[in-house]
Write a protein that binds this DNA or RNA. Structure first.
Lengths: 341, 341
DNA sequence: CTTTGTCCATAAATGCTTTCATGTTTCATG
DNA sequence: CATGAAACATGAAAGCATTTATGGACAAAG
């Protein structure tokens, strides 16, 4: 069933059918009716390839993501995908893993497939070495590239980020002000946002004259292996590092800290405070429930898609947008002590 | 840069370039070299639409999923996507939500886009009412349809499922044999696999002469709202339902049961046993760690993709494959008491 | 001198969009 | 009320970038 069949049955030319299909205004109501009837009757659907050939677009956006099973990334993908759909676009998803080479491969593949835009979900797409980010610049020469929680200043690439620096800075200040001085910063990623978070912690501790390199601890190992993280913390303690607070760059790490504190028989939050990041489902699963920073993922995604659709529409759009996060207080941090005068 | 440009620069016809591109045998080594050189030199990549028009395929599989942010579904998508990539296919992801209508819409959209096959991730795609599943049968008339953890007997649809019935049956028997009689079955989905699980529990309790309708409890509400589930369990208790064990159809529900038991000051597992399902990350996050049933998701996915690739290759493939799960014992269930004689 | 087989070019086919040209209305104007 | 200009409706045909069927040229083999 092609456009020819329809045109024949409707007694019009294929051009008219095409016009009806594409909602062109220049077609009389009568003809439109007739054509639509036939289309309905024969369940005709235009061939996407042919249409793509003609229009040179398929209304499809490529989504790249290192690991769609990561709690946070999965949520991001979900929001992005739904909002994209609402905007009339489809999405091709590529899970790339964390290695640069396979990111490049996937990206090229998507461009070859003629996606209209690219969304890179997660800050792990930006690398420390400037030259490693060339692949994004090159891609942006072909299609607009959107970065979620990452930042790169280049033509045709747009960034939507949450203000991780400030969130961490404020959360750290607050934890110190509840009376905790020996806070370990626990993280597992040197990504763009990872670095911003750490910087926030650093700035705050520095301001409070409490900064200590020893207390900045990196976890290498599986992102899901809570027991391994817990062990790691126990080892730090065994090695003589004293700490009564953990600020974690991710809720999983914070969860491990909770397990550690419980194993040590600390009372939470009286003896030991913990702050998580991302305000994921884990925060509520935790016992006691985790105070965590919410970076308003859905809002970020909404904005990202709005921007992308704007760009695709040929409009001028902001190159970088920053949203501030929010500390969601639950039961692993203390209230600020009222000042006794 | 089109195939014409390349053919001109290489001094051959476009047909020859096409043959080189598609690895046809009828082309001399010398010509192939020359063409490949030019292609390399000009960074030529064939136009996906034109190619699609000619071949009527784009090597793309459509993945449908109700909610990609669901812990379990996200993992499934991840595995499916990666294995598909390894097989040389891309994937278009559509998050459909749980309503039938939007599933149908998304499905048609994917078919219009000329995907080569469809993968429905999750048992929620199969409905109770036979007629509600017609949409799958219709889709299967166009392209092969793969079901993950769901089952439908129709031409061109293939199922890969885990043996939830047996897993639940055995787990229930075992819990009873550790001495617990008043076990609540806690579930939140009437999906295909949801029903199989429940049936397993039923069969076991029946066999042990312990079946009680009151103890089969459905949770309606957000799938992520642990506090709500916990409240629900407390309410059951308040209403006079006595129970010292929970078998949950999902780890989130089990997690809520853990929270409930702790709130009631039960010792786990001495006074109260809990069994989860899916062996997700939550099982290890939990305190104490959750005993949970692992249904070998990665193996299921691997098999599913193998089957799909086989079908696309024109080979005969098994219509339905069942894998058995495994109980991963952690700390929320008791060991079977040694028989004292 | 014919047959066979290899290698390659020509041309048709794929199904749509869109430009251009043409025919048809509408409507203000004199 | 007739006329011409502008707006509208439609069709023919030219792309779009490939794949593939057909057949021709040429070389080697019988």
């Amino acid at each position: 069933m092609t456009i020819y069949d329809i045109s024949e049955k409707a007694g019009v030319s294929i051009a008219t059918v095409s016009r009806v299909l594409n909602g062109s205004s220049n077609v009389s109501e009568k003809t439109r009716r007739k054509v639509l009837d036939i289309i309905e009757q024969y369940q005709y659907a235009p061939n996407a390839f042919a249409r793509g050939l003609g229009l040179n677009t398929m209304k499809t956006i490529g989504i790249l993501c290192a690991d769609s099973s990561d709690l946070y990334l999965a949520k991001a993908i979900y929001h992005v995908e739904r909002k994209l759909q609402a905007g009339g676009y489809d999405s091709i998803l590529c899970c790339t893993g964390y290695e640069l080479a396979s990111k490049i491969t996937s990206m090229n593949l998507l461009i070859t497939k003629k996606v209209d835009g690219l969304i890179l979900v997660g800050s792990n797409f930006i690398y420390e070495k400037e030259s490693d980010n060339k692949y994004i610049v090159e891609a942006a020469a072909q299609v607009p590239v959107m970065l979620l929680n990452a930042d790169l200043d280049a033509p045709n690439v747009y960034s939507v980020v949450s203000d991780d620096f400030t969130s961490m800075y404020e959360a750290t200040i607050q934890m110190v002000e509840t009376g905790i001085q020996d806070i370990v910063y626990y993280y597992n990623s040197d990504s763009y946002s990872g670095k911003r978070k750490l910087a926030g912690y650093r700035a705050a501790m520095n301001e409070k004259k409490l900064l200590s390199g020893q207390r900045i601890q990196f976890y290498r190992g599986s992102r899901e292996d809570i027991p391994a993280m817990t062990e790691h913390l126990k080892r730090l303690h065994a090695q003589g590092l004293a700490f009564h607070g953990v600020i974690a760059a991710d809720d999983t790490l914070a969860l491990a800290a909770v397990k550690y504190a419980r194993a040590m028989n600390y009372r939470i939050p009286d003896d030991f405070s913990i702050l998580g990041y991302n305000n994921s489902m884990l925060a509520e699963c935790c016992e006691p429930e985790l105070t965590s920073i919410d970076n308003k993922l859905e809002i970020l995604c909404q904005h990202l898609i709005t921007t992308l659709l704007g760009v695709l529409d040929g409009r001028e759009m902001p190159k970088k947008t920053i949203f501030s996060g929010e500390i969601v207080r639950r039961r692993t941090t203390r209230r600020i002590e009222p000042v006794v005068s």
